[in-house]
Design a protein around this nucleic acid. Sequence first.
RNA 1: UGCCCGAUGGUGUAACGGUAGCACAGCAGACUCUGAAUCUGUUUGUCAUGGUUCAAAUCCAUGUCGGGCAACCA
Length: 592
Amino acid sequence: MPAAPSDFIRDIVAAHVAENIYSRIHTRFPPEPNGYLHIGHAKSICLNFGIAREFGGVCNLRMDDTNPAKEDVEYVDSIQADVNWLIAGWADDKLGLKPKGMTPETVAEEGRRDFYLPAVTQSEIGNRKSEIFEPFYASDYFDQIYDFAEQLVEKGKAFVCDLTPEETDEYRRNGKASPFRDRGVEENLNLFQRMKAGEFTDGSRVLRAKIEVDAANIWMRDPLLYRIKKTEHHHTGAKWCIYPMYDFAHCLSDYIEGITHSICTLEFEVHRPLYDWILESLGLPRPLPHQYEFARLSLGYTVMSKRKLMQLVDEKLVTGWDDPRMPTISGIRRRGVTPEALRNFAYNIGITKYNGLTDVSVLEFAIREDLNKRSLRRLAVLRPIKVVITNYAAGQVEELEAVNNPEDETAGKRKIPFSRELYIEREDFAEVPPPKFFRLKPGGEVRLKYAYIIKCEEVVKDAAGNLVELRCTADLDSKSGGATSNRKVKGTIHWVSAAHAVEAEVRLYDRLFTEAEPDKDGRDFKSVLNPHSLEVVTAKLEPSLKDARPEVRYQFERLAYFALDYDAQPGKLVFNRTITLKDAWAKAAQKS
RNA sequence: UGCCCGAUGGUGUAACGGUAGCACAGCAGACUCUGAAUCUGUUUGUCAUGGUUCAAAUCCAUGUCGGGCAACCA
C-alpha cells in the first residue's frame, strides 16, 4: 500500500486531531438497505474506514433505515457481507461494534435529556464471539428520535401540519407559510402523539420543523421531520407507524453514536444547514458531529445508480446483483477481484469535490497490478485446435517443470504433462499471417512454453475447408531447461496435452456497456448494453487445475486472470474471467 | 429561475503566495520461454478577463462552462 493518503477531508480531520477537539475520531458508513453496495460505496467505505485507521478512530456500519417501504433484510445481509469483505485484514479492527439489542442510554444533564450509545471498545469486547454483534441501525434510535422530536415541539420549533403533500409542495415552493404553522405547543404535542398512536391515515399529517418559510435554501423552508407510514419495518416490525425523515434521523443518529465526522456525498451539501439546525436547536450537551461532503464516483462504461442496477436485475439483463458484470461489490468479488485491488483503486482516485468521470483503465490497472503479484500461472486453451507432433512417440509422456508465479518465488513449481497430441489456441495459428505475427504459421516455428520448439509442417482441413489439425515436428534438442535449449524463436505460445486436459466452463466477461457514459444526455442506458458482455466457452486446462480453489487467483498464461465461480461443482469446473492481460498485439493488430 | 458547489494535460489527482508534480492512458525503445510483467525515454495542462503582489494554479472581482438541490426518498 502506498503512503498515507491525503485529501481535503483528511486535512480537516488531522487539524481536529491536532487541536484535540474530540476525544476520538469516529466516522460512519450509513447505507440505506434498499439495494446492493457498489464500487461507489467502496470509495466511501475506504474513506470512512481509512480515516478511522489513520487517526486511531472507529467507523460504524449503520443501516440508514428510515423508509421501510423500500428496505429489506436481504440488503442488510448483503451490505454487511460486502463491508466485511472489503475491510477484512485492513480495517476490520476499526469497525464499531454493537452488541445485539443494545439501545441508547438516557442521561439527564442540566435538566436536559440526552441519549447516547455507550462506547464499546475492543478491550471490553474481550473474547466474545462475533455472532453477538450486529450493525448499527438508525431504526434502533426511533424511541430517542421521537423523543427529540417532542423536545423540538416543546421548544416551539416544530409543528404538526395538515396540508396535503401537494399543498405542502406548493407552499414550500412559493415560500408561503403553512396555515398550521402557529399551532400551540399543546395542540402540536397532542397531534404528534396521536400520529404516533396511529389515529391518522398515511399522508394526512406530518411533523415539520419551524425554521423559515421563505429561506433561500429550500431545505430550510419548514422541512418535514416525520411522516405517517403504516408499513412494517424490517427491523422494528409493526412498532411504528410514523417514521423520521432522513434529515431528522441522520444527524441525530450521528449524535447518538458519538460520530465526529459525518462524511457524505455532494448532493447533501444543501442539507448541511438543516443538519446543524436540528442539532443546535436541541441544545445538546456533547460536541456536535459535522457533515463533510465529497464527490461520488462515476466510472466509465458503467452505471452506478441503485435504481438502474435494480432495473438490470429485475429485467434479467444480468443474472443477479452479483453478476460478475455488475459494478456491485458482490459482482466485482465474484468476478475475482480482491479487496486489496479495490482499496488501491480507491486510494488512487482520491477524494475531491469535483464531479469527474474516472476512466475504467484506472480500475483495470489496480486489478491487474494486484493479480499479477498473487496469481498462480497455469496453461489453458480457451479455443482449442489440435496439434500433432509427428516425430514424438505416441504413448510417450513427459512431465515438464513449470513456474507457478514468476513474481513470487515462494509459489514454487509444478509439473505439466507433454505428449504427442496437444491443443493450442486457435488465435495462435494463422494460415495467412499478418505482418509481425510471431506465432505459429505454415512452415514457421514457435516455442511451446516449458517444452519444445515446433515447426508447422502441414495444415489439415476437412471437406468444407475447416481447420482440423496441425501436423508439426518438434526440435527434440530444444526442450526448455535442456543443454541445447538456447536456440531462440520469436514466439512462445501456451498449450495443453490433449489426453491429460481437463475441461471447464469458462465465462468470458467484458464491460456491460458499449459507451463510456451509458446514460449520457438522458439516453436509455439499456440501449447501449454490450451484446458481447458474456461469452461462454469450454476450455481445455492443464490437469493441475482440477484442484482449483475458490480463494486462489489464476492467470491462464498469455490470456487473462481467472477465478473459480461458486457455480463450480465437484467434477465441474466453472471459471470467471476477471480481466484480460494487457494485449499489445491485439492493439497493434487492430490498428493495421 | 432561486440557492449551493466546482473548474489543473486525454482521464483522475498534487502543489495551501515562490521550480506546475504523480498515477492511469498514449507514444517510442530495451528486455522477454507470457506480444504480460519489468525498465528507459516521451507528447499533452492551470476555464476567461481584469485586479492585488516583487511574485498568482493558489487571494479578490466579473464572466463562462459543468454539477447538485427545489421527494411525505436517502
